[in-house]
């Protein structure tokens, strides 16, 4: 099951010539996922950067069928695609809906929870850049506590909504978090999702350097720091059994938070509080 780079298909089913910014974490997530999903895949994407950067009616960066849906409904459209495939007796196609944090956790949530409840045979991916980037970086339910967004000059006063826990609560057979800095972990989770004949949910932390106010070349580096600081836990829940898939080294959370422009208002006390809760969560502290 363990993937090796030599085994990956050479073909680029998505990404080449895409219209996104340089250093786009969402595009990286798409490329890594497509290495496993393969050419027999139909993807729906609601309004978002990922939809826009994939092209339009004249030109496309995709080599698989890609449908740019309205914001509220990618998982509903994918449910319909699965039904249409089933009625035609086509069983070898992977059906995926792929939304941003707003397209999954906020505006797109009702279609997502419906498809999950019905246990549709599909994968929903939330690529999470923790804000509404395509419209200029507004706050979402996935924006972390204290982060600045374009519509807020103080910093988010409430916590990031725990989407993985919400999706787990649907009783799904496969739920996983992933990060673009750990491509093999990510790709193995896509393999596991493909093996599940029902609904699977994968939530990928995919930094956006513009929104996070970090240098573009550090997109992967910050994705890695999020994991190694313990703030973004890599795990999967397979048929109710939860496994941590990467044991973080627990570098100080300050090393992840403070270099990012979006956390420039964070207080020393707030950083200490976050550190205390992380240390406690991983059970490596005194308490």
């Amino acid at each position: 099951m363990t993937l090796r780079i030599e085994d990956l298909p050479k073909e680029e089913l998505f990404g080449q010539g895409n219209g996104g910014c340089k250093a786009c974490g969402a595009a990286i997530a798409g490329r890594q996922a497509m290495k496993v999903l393969g050419e027999r895949t139909i993807i729906t994407i609601p309004a978002s950067c990922m939809a826009t950067l994939g092209g339009n009616n004249q030109k496309t960066a995709w080599k698989i069928p890609f449908y740019h849906t309205l914001f509220e409904m990618a998982p509903a459209v994918s449910s319909g695609i699965r039904a249409a495939l089933e009625i035609q007796g086509v069983n070898d196609v992977n059906v995926v809906s792929w939304g941003g944090d707003a397209g999954s956790a906020d505006i797109g949530f009702q279609a997502l929870t419906g498809a999950a409840e019905r246990n549709e045979h599909m994968i929903h991916v939330c690529y999470d850049n923790e804000m509404y980037m395509n419209t200029g970086g507004q706050q979402s339910s996935q924006t972390p506590l204290y982060a600045l967004t374009s519509n807020d000059h103080i910093g988010k006063p409430v916590k990031k909504k725990n989407m993985l826990a919400i999706m787990e609560a649907h009783g799904l057979d496969y739920v996983a978090s992933a990060s673009i800095a750990y491509p093999f972990d990510l790709m193995e989770k896509f393999q596991n999702a493909l093996a599940n004949p029902g609904f699977s949910y994968i939530h990928i932390l995919a930094p956006c350097y513009r929104g996070w106010q970090i240098p573009g070349e550090k997109t992967i580096e910050f994705a890695r720091l999020a994991v190694e600081s313990g703030l973004w836990e890599l795990f999967e829940v397979k048929k109710g059994v939860r496994t941590r898939t990467h044991e973080p080294s627990l570098i100080p959370v300050a090393d992840y938070l403070l270099p990012q422009g979006r956390f420039k208002n964070i207080s020393k006390k707030a950083v200490e509080e976050i550190q205390t809760s992380i240390t406690k969560y991983y059970g490596r502290g005194d308490k």
Partner: peptide
């Protein structure tokens, strides 16, 4: 599978 009915698959890579 039809890609985008009016666009050639992967055509953005031709004029990046």
């Amino acid at each position: 599978l039809p890609i985008v009915p009016t666009a050639k698959p992967g055509s953005m890579a031709e004029t990046p």
